[in-house]
Design a protein around this nucleic acid. Structure first.
Lengths: 214, 214
DNA sequence: AGACTCGGGTTACCGCTAGTAACATATTAT
DNA sequence: ATAATATGTTACTAGCGGTAACCCGAGTCT
């Protein structure tokens, strides 16, 4: 009948969509974030217009692609964040989970951080703030929520939690990015150093002696 | 004779170069980071190949342009960082300086964070880690140096300082980016929240009562 | 004077990208 | 059979970064 047919077609469409996303995944994994629509279409064994029929435009495809990985990573992070352990352990586990993920698949990670880079130039005037990777934003909000749920921060806790959420995520991201490029230490050392920073060792450290003679 | 002529020409070339950079500046300020070479050339009153003669390629121009702003911003930051005040005040002043800068010229700031986005595809294989904005890296290294110079961190201080430098810069950047987009609070509040985070309030906060029944 | 290099400039092009219009084909409903 | 609908293709546009080839005016050598 009518309904069964529609579902038939939709199922087929959904399967196609998944296939296309997987092909795109492979290409991005190989070529990095500047993978072209042509290349993705070729990898999927079809031609460009089909991609556009399914995803609208490039940022549409990228958004769909990003959503999958972002969801997956966020699930891992939630797990680490919700583990039954004390706070320091949970923080370290979360940092380590993130760093392990970006270490395992740098190209994907790189893609997630530099997604669209501006569309056809629609209004390009005051959309500043939207340019940051959605992954960072989502992680920031997620962490903010956990912080606000679990910690007693007194008045203004919600705003404080959000600032901290985005700040901590940014710290993790920048440090991870730098670490991935230079590999100056092991992952465990990096995790410990960052956790130490969050634990206030910066404020607690003493001044160095023998300063500028004063 | 010969030398004077060479310097004459070089002076002229340098002046041209500055003019071109200023034109590029105007365009970037107007169009954001995706300003095209054509547009920049037009703004400067000349045509593309001249730009290429002066700067090699787009990333060359962008690098030159970025260097100016990066240097300027880093000078301001150094000033705040070296002020004769206690540590907390210096940290807050530095955060505030950075945030004021990105608040004043968001387009420029946006450009500094998303500079090249990949050249003609030379080797595009394993250069991960290089994609982050040079500004972030330079700020991270700079801060690391100051930390290592001034703080007594015990053994492994150099690595610790570098991790912290990049981590703190990342925190500042991500929080600033988010703040610029949503404007959820005043700059002063943001500064205080971030400083609180660095001062270990995350570790010091108490657990919230009335958790999941356990 | 006349040929000659040489720096600053332009036009016209290449190869590539994102995105689209128009045409072709199969499957299905009536 | 016929109309409609999804699925796919070819062939195109507009604009990008980048470059080769030419062009012209000013100074220099003989």
């Amino acid at each position: 009948m009518d309904t069964t047919q529609r579902t038939e077609q939709q199922r087929s469409a959904d399967r196609r969509r998944r296939e296309l996303l997987e092909a795109a995944d492979r290409v991005v994994l190989r070529d990095g974030p500047q993978a072209s629509m042509n290349a993705i279409a070729a990898e999927a064994g079809i031609t460009k217009p089909i991609l556009y029929r399914h995803f609208g435009d490039k940022s549409g495809l990228y958004a769909a692609l990003a959503k999958r990985h972002t969801d997956a990573l966020l699930n891992s992070l939630r797990e680490a964040l919700d583990a039954p352990a004390d706070r320091r352990e949970r923080v370290e586990a979360t940092l380590d989970t993130y760093l392990a993920a970006i270490e395992a698949r740098p190209q994907v990670y790189r893609f997630l951080m530099h997604p669209a880079e501006g569309g056809t130039g629609t209004d390009q005037g005051f959309d500043v703030g939207k340019h940051s990777a959605p992954l960072l934003r989502r992680m920031g909000e997620e962490l903010a929520q956990v912080i606000e749920e679990r910690l007693d921060l007194g008045p203004g806790s919600q705003q404080l939690a959000r600032v901290w959420g985005h700040g901590i995520v940014g710290m993790m991201h920048a440090a991870g990015d730098w670490w991935l490029g230079e590999r100056p230490c092991t992952r465990a050392q990096l995790v410990k150093s960052l956790a130490d920073l969050l634990w206030g060792r910066l404020a607690a450290a003493g001044d160095k002696v023998g300063g500028p003679g004063f």
